[in-house]
C-alpha cells in the first residue's frame, strides 16, 4: 500500500519536503510520519500540517496529490523506492537522488535531477532550467541515471553532467550541455543558443530539425548512421519515453567544443546544420 500525501490548501509559500522519501519513511509509524518535519516558508512544521496523509509507505511508494507547484525538493536525495506525483511540482525534484523512480504527471520547476547519482525520473509535462545540472561552484552535474521529459525544458540542461541520460521530448533553452563532461542529452524539439559550449565529451542529439545554432568551435565530421543511437532509442522506449519522432535517416555529426578537449559530439537531423 502506498503512502498518499494530498495537499489541500492553495497558499503560494514555498514548502520543502526534504527527507520525505520512501526509503526514509518506510517502517515509520503513521503518527511519526505525520510529525515528520518539513519546511513551510521560514518555519519548520509537521508533515500533517500541510498534507492529508493516507496509507503507509511499506511498499516503498509515496504518492503526491493536490497543489504541488510550490512544493520543492520532492524525492531529493532519495535512494530507493518510488514516488508518483499527480500534478506539477516545484524545484529540485529528484535533486541528488541516488536510486529509485520518480514519475510526475505534470510539470516540474528548475533543477530537476540536479547532481543526481542514479535513478530514473520521468516527467510528462515541461520542466524549468538546469535539469541534471551542477549546483553553483560544483564541478559535476548528474553522474548517472535517466531524466525523461515529455514536454520542453529551460536553459543549461545537463550543465557539467558527467554521465547519464537526459531526453527532452520538446524544445530546450540556451546552453544545453554547458561544460558537459560526458553523458547523453537528446532533444526532440528546437534548441536554444550555444548547445555544447565548453563540452569536453558526451553526446548531444538535437533532433528537432531545422538549423542548430552552433559555436564556431564545433567542426563538422560528416553524415552517419550510428548504431549506439538505436540502442538508446530502444532503451528509452523500454522505459516509457514515447511519442517523439526518432530520426530514421542519417545524421550530421559535429565535434567540439574545441576549446575544451573537443571530444564532444553534436548530432543533428540530416541537413540540420549550422544556423
Amino acid at each position: 500500500m502506498a503512502l498518499l500525501l494530498r495537499r489541500t490548501d492553495e497558499s503560494d509559500l514555498p514548502i520543502e519536503v526534504i527527507g520525505v522519501r520512501p526509503d526514509r519513511l518506510r517502517g515509520m509509524p503513521p503518527a511519526e510520519i505525520g510529525r515528520f518535519p518539513i519546511r513551510h516558508g521560514n518555519r519548520t512544521v509537521p508533515l500533517a500540517e500541510v498534507f492529508q496523509i493516507k496509507g503507509d509507505p511499506s511498499d516503498e511508494r509515496i504518492d503526491f496529490e493536490g497543489n504541488l507547484r510550490n512544493v520543492h525538493r520532492i524525492g531529493a536525495q532519495m535512494s530507493a523506492g518510488r514516488i508518483v506525483v499527480d500534478g506539477c511540482t516545484g524545484w529540485h525534484l529528484a535533486a541528488q537522488m541516488s536510486g529509485g523512480t520518480i514519475e510526475v504527471s505534470g510539470d516540474a520547476g528548475d533543477w530537476v535531477g540536479a547532481e543526481m547519482t542514479n535513478g530514473h525520473v520521468s516527467i510528462c509535462g515541461s520542466v524549468g532550467d538546469l535539469v541534471g545540472a551542477s549546483y553553483p561552484g560544483s564541478r559535476r552535474g548528474m553522474t548517472n541515471g535517466t531524466i525523461l521529459v515529455g514536454g520542453s525544458a529551460g536553459a543549461e540542461i545537463g550543465r557539467s553532467m558527467r554521465r547519464g541520460t537526459i531526453a527532452i521530448g520538446g524544445a530546450c533553452g540556451d546552453h544545453a550541455g554547458l561544460g558537459m563532461i560526458a553523458g547523453t542529452i537528446l532533444v526532440f524539439g528546437s534548441c536554444g543558443r550555444y548547445p555544447g559550449a565548453e563540452m569536453r565529451r558526451g553526446t548531444i542529439g538535437l533532433f528537432g530539425g531545422g538549423p542548430v545554432p552552433l559555436l564556431p568551435t564545433f567542426r563538422r565530421a560528416g553524415r552517419f548512421r550510428p548504431q549506439f543511437l538505436a540502442l538508446i532509442e530502444r532503451e528509452l522506449r523500454r522505459t516509457g519515453f514515447a511519442g517523439v519522432d526518432w530520426p530514421s535517416g542519417k545524421l550530421d555529426l559535429y565535434h567540439g567544443d574545441l576549446l575544451s578537449l573537443g571530444k564532444g559530439e553534436i548530432w543533428t537531423r540530416e541537413g540540420g546544420g549550422l544556423a
Binding site: 541520460t165 553526446t203 532503451e235
Partner: peptide
C-alpha cells in the same frame, strides 16, 4: 573511443 552507458550496460 567513446564510452556509453545505456540502461545498465556499457558500450
Amino acid at each position: 573511443q567513446i564510452s556509453k552507458w545505456i540502461g545498465e550496460r556499457r558500450y
